[in-house]
Design a protein around this nucleic acid. Sequence first.
RNA 1: GGCACCGUGGCCGAGGAAUUAGGCAAAGGUCUGCAAAACCUUUUUACGCGGGUGUAAAUCCCGUCGGUGCCUCCA
Length: 474
Amino acid sequence: MKLYNALTKKVEDFKPSVAPEVRLYSCGPTVYDYPHIGNWRSFVFVDTLRRALESNSFSVKHVMNITDVGHLTSDADEGQDKLEAGAEREGKSVWDVAKHYTDVFIQGAQALNLLSPNAYSGPIGPYARATDFIAEQVNLIKLLMDKGFAYKIKQAIYFDVSKLPSYGELSGQKLTDKAVGAREDVVTDAKKRNPQDFALWFFRVGRFADHEMRWPSPWGEGFPGWHLECSAIAHATLGDPLDIHTGGVDHIGTHHPNEMAQTEAAFGHRLANFWLHNEFVLVDGQKMSKSLGNFITLDSVVKKDYDPLALRLLFLQAHYRSQLNFTWEALSAAQNFLKRLQAWADLKFQPNLGHKKKAADVYKPLLDKIVSEIQDDLNTPQALSELSKLSELSEHEGVDSEKIQPLLEGVDKIFGLKLASRKDVNQSIKEWISQRQKARDSQDWSRADKLRQQLMKHGIGINDTPHGPVWSRI
RNA sequence: GGCACCGUGGCCGAGGAAUUAGGCAAAGGUCUGCAAAACCUUUUUACGCGGGUGUAAAUCCCGUCGGUGCCUCCA
């Protein structure tokens, strides 16, 4: 199996440290607002990665965190905790805000048919909340303090990046370049030893005096910095070095180097052997942002009558390392493609159609091709083109309902489009279809058309073929 | 200023030196009592522009124009 590794900037042969087990950690959402489709793309990417690994007989242990504390709106002095900002905006407590958006996230994950993380179980199920790992984070700071990698000043405990020579390896940029090149309006804490030093623990002083979320620590009451949770949770749940760590490309510069630094400094080994990053979704050629008003949520997609799985399919039609330019037209195209695939899957309920001579031996090579494309650095677009050929083949040759089911299951394992679990139409629909056919046989066209209209009302379209009527959901 | 990436037919997008994805849309046609949401066919000088190296370039190199991202919270 081949994967692009951001550490080496090359596509490499992926091997976990203890096969067949793969320990996979993914940066999850910060639950302070509705996730946009760019966020969802990164979670669909992780899901695809997991399915690809599993298709290669790896047994994946997956952990995803949920950031519900400590994520500041900026590193500057006026930076605010995102959760606190959300609470202020909505007039709720931070805990309510976190709970609300956690629920929103979990519902969205289900709608997109994302596999739940499976290597941790906590108060809210399979997702690891930062606030459920405060003790682990405090312990990590202790280690860093003992080893001289962290220092305390009035406002916070900082990680001293100058103490770790390997700092910033991933970003491929020199510290000096970064320091010089940063935009003028970025204000950093003047008391930090180095501009890149990042907070491990914030004290309840100054701008954080009224911070609602707070815990005791050996150094004083406060709350953890954002980067800390990933190192602590990964260490506590999966153990490091991880086989794979994922996140968005935006983390290459700051968040991931900081995670790496914490783990390397505290435990003396790297955090992960493979680092995979997904590219952004652009909207009309630009990054999504609230100020541009091009912030698209899953909710707005559903409100426009799109199937969340159409969004999933749209994501899969582009490579995860390419920027994807979202347009509603492209989403419509994906939705139409999805409907065609669903109609194809529904043929399994209508096995009386066409010939049945082609069997699993024809499907198998195509399914194998799909799997091999997916294992080639997750080439989902290429794999989907094979799927398209596969569905055409079946449509032409007729469908053997016995043999198509395993095929659909194989396809679902890769793409997660829920083709195998589709339900047959109910008994009354079947009855109407057969009554309509009887009416047609006796040339009672008005009754036949009435029944067809009735079926249409229930979302069922009828196509009369030489082999009899074929229904499809419309 | 520094670091990357990208410009592919109406739209979305793979590929990446000779065989040239796929989806959607569009056009024509077929079966049919009617119908299409069904089927078939077509869309085979598509690779930003200008040079260069190759027997051969969309694919490599140089330049150029344009776009995007990161360097600040960010998927």
